[in-house]
């Protein structure tokens, strides 16, 4: 099944992205940020909702806007865009809750064949990295773009 993506806005350094989720609870602005860490080419992927009243970003909010597949597909599209500019990036991601980490894992599992065409995918479990396997539980994920 094909999954649509939302239109995305990006910052000049392609490290911050924003899009609007449109679902049963209305329009909700989502923000994705890639944050460089101490090790060269290592980035954290953060993702959450922007509160319209304050402009603050919160990754603990549970939105349930009924469009989680489209939202995840849009976040994935930012990974492609980001790694076009930063092809050596190693991107770490984890959910802010166990259920959200599970949602990421399901999202990766469902699209693993396509993702593996372009990325190495690893799952973190008990302080060890493993080659990602569909439907296995992980605490975090690391993706690295393949040199095609």
């Amino acid at each position: 099944m094909a999954i649509d993506n939302y239109d995305v806005k990006y910052s000049s350094n392609l490290m911050t992205f924003e899009f609007v989720s449109e679902g049963i609870k209305g329009k909700i602005t989502k923000v994705v940020q890639y944050t460089p860490r101490g090790l060269k080419n290592f980035y954290n992927l953060g993702f959450g909702d922007k509160k319209e009243e304050t402009g603050e970003v919160d990754d603990m909010i549970i939105t349930d806007n009924g469009d989680s597949k489209k939202v995840l597909a849009t976040v994935a599209s930012t990974v492609y865009r980001f790694t076009e500019k930063y092809p050596d990036a190693m991107i770490y991601a984890t959910g802010s809750t166990k259920s959200r980490t599970r949602m990421y894992r399901i999202g990766i599992s469902n699209n693993l064949k396509d993702i593996r065409k372009d990325f190495f995918v690893f799952g973190l479990k008990n302080n060890q990295w493993h080659d990602f396997e569909a439907d296995k539980e992980y605490e975090g994920f690391l993706v690295v773009r393949k040199k095609n």
Partner: peptide, 28 residues
């Protein structure tokens, strides 16, 4: 599949020096 478009937004440059997800960054 409807591919979303990508468009530059100057407004997002205000986040350039700001860490929006500090707890996630700590975990990383």
């Amino acid at each position: 599949k409807k591919k979303g478009t990508f468009k530059y937004s100057k407004k997002l440059d205000k986040y350039r020096e700001k860490i929006l997800f500090p707890k996630k960054v700590e975990k990383a």
